[in-house]
Design a binder for these strands. Structure first.
Lengths: 291, 291
DNA sequence: CACTATACTTAAGATTAACTAAAGTATTAG
DNA sequence: CTAATACTTTAGTTAATCTTAAGTATAGTG
């Protein structure tokens, strides 16, 4: 489309021009750039040739800028400044202080286990655009695979997921909680249950744990939110198996029906395998793994 | 020396990046630049190396821009546009006064309001290479910002556009037109409508005007060309709100459904703010403002 | 009027960058 | 599976840029 061949000016040539305009003599300008006067002279001659307009003129034994040079000089200053900005941005990008990370976690991680770590990391890297999505584990892993998220903390998926790198992060003990007015008998008498919806990773862990204890698993209500499940137990709707952090927080914590846990929920940090290493993501991942 | 040596980017490398971002594939981009795909590939690899940030990634057999590339791409577009300005200035400097102006207008301006003014100006300055692009307002402003156009006459954008200088040019009254066989009742009975596509500046003006009148705005067909909309009304497909100049021209002019206008479309002359003053553009701009 | 320091420029040779053409590597489409 | 597509890599050539060293012109000094 637009074919009027542009002059192939280099940032270096523009730097030469800026330095030559600022220094009292070219020798000084050359020294401040760390090149020889000869290099500066040749570089400026080439710049003038490419722009195609006489920019310099001899006055005595000095070479001075002609009035026409002001347009070129303005252009040079602008491009040099813009390139400096770009270089600074690139430096921050390399060290992970800038950029964007789309983090997804289950609610227990964002609300309890890593809330403080995320807040600290956000304060420590103000240039970082950190976006947090809270959703169930399955949805998070789907988004990660599709590329809508960069980093996920969720319940360990059953079996290997192709294309993901998964690192163990922490383990949550799951306890059974009964409504306050109910007698806790043998596990065979437990229930009915309020729990996570069909398809939830945590529900699989709960079902397996209850099965080992010989407890029936009759589900009468479902929710993805542990706070909602906790309230259902408090209202006497049924029993629940929940991570202690969620069940025993707030003004009226639930009390465990049994001191030993029903199961263990293993939380992991996941990221795409094929993706180019991004320092910002690496940094956040290590913060989340450390706690 | 507080100088963290700047990357020696060349205008050519930045042009490569812009072309690569705009072309569907690198092969196409390379051809549009008149170089081989290999040259483009090597040039972009060198650019990436100098910036020091990964900006490309393979996706299937294509190489795509990573999100990080946007910063670099913005920089590239800006520097390329600035260099184009500089080159044009240099050309005028060399040739004395002749130059090139790339004018963009919406169709009503080129066809009706300023057709004669443009013809006169072309005759008056035979040395001027005046290029006219007719397109919708949004596309014109995009081209202007990118540097593909020097001067634009379009519908006034909503809100300030950064980097542009905008001067009011003229106002067009927009009237409602009904198919000839339709009874014109109260505005609440008007429609359905044929109008400009979603996103069009003019459409926003029309929608606001109809809303004030209490007329429903059910759209059954769209076109960017007022002639096409006029023909649709003539064929009885629906109602339209159009500038009088477009609707009431030709052999069979439409007649207004209501003598008072539905809205006002304000046309403006726009140009980039950062550009070096170009006498040729200045002259044309004042011709267009005067009429 | 030399004599010399200053301020650049030009020349020569080495290094580096950038191009084309051709071969290589995945990936997708039939 | 084969062919086509989309890039990248390699090899070899040409162009640009650097340094050192020599050249030119000017200004100040005795």
């Amino acid at each position: 489309m637009a074919q009027p061949n542009l002059p192939n000016l280099t940032v270096q040539q523009l730097e030469y021009l800026v330095a030559a305009a600022e220094g009292p003599t070219r020798a000084v300008a050359a020294a401040s750039l760390g090149v020889t006067a000869s290099a500066l002279s040749q570089g400026l001659a080439e710049l003038e040739r490419r722009v195609g307009v006489r920019i310099f003129e001899r006055q005595g034994r000095q070479t001075r800028l002609r009035p026409q040079a002001n347009e070129v000089l303005t252009h040079a200053r602008r491009v040099v400044a813009e390139t400096r900005d770009l270089a600074r941005w690139a430096g921050m990008q390399r060290t992970g202080q800038a950029g964007m990370v789309r983090l997804g976690t289950i609610d227990a991680v964002a609300v309890n286990h890593r809330a403080e770590a995320i807040r600290r990391h956000r304060r420590a890297t103000p240039g970082l655009d950190l976006r947090l999505t809270v959703a169930p584990s399955g949805a998070l892993l789907d988004s990660l695979l599709v590329g809508d998220l960069d980093l996920v903390v969720c319940v360990e998926p059953t079996g290997l997921v192709d294309g993901l790198v998964i690192s163990p992060c922490l383990e949550e003990l799951l306890y059974a909680y009964a409504p306050s007015d109910v007698h806790v008998g043998a596990p065979t008498e437990w229930g009915p249950w309020v729990t996570y919806p069909e398809g939830s990773h945590t529900r699989k862990v709960i079902a397996a744990g209850l099965s080992v204890l010989g407890a029936p698993f009759a589900v009468i209500a479902e929710s993805n939110q542990p706070e909602v499940l906790r309230e259902m137990v408090r209202l006497g709707m049924g029993w629940a198996v929940l991570p202690a952090a969620g069940a025993e927080a707030g003004a009226e914590p639930l009390t465990r029906a049994r001191s030993r846990p029903v199961g263990v929920r293993r939380l992991v940090v996941a990221r795409r395998a094929d993706v180019v290493t991004d320092v910002a993501v690496d940094n956040l991942a290590s913060v989340l793994l450390r706690g």
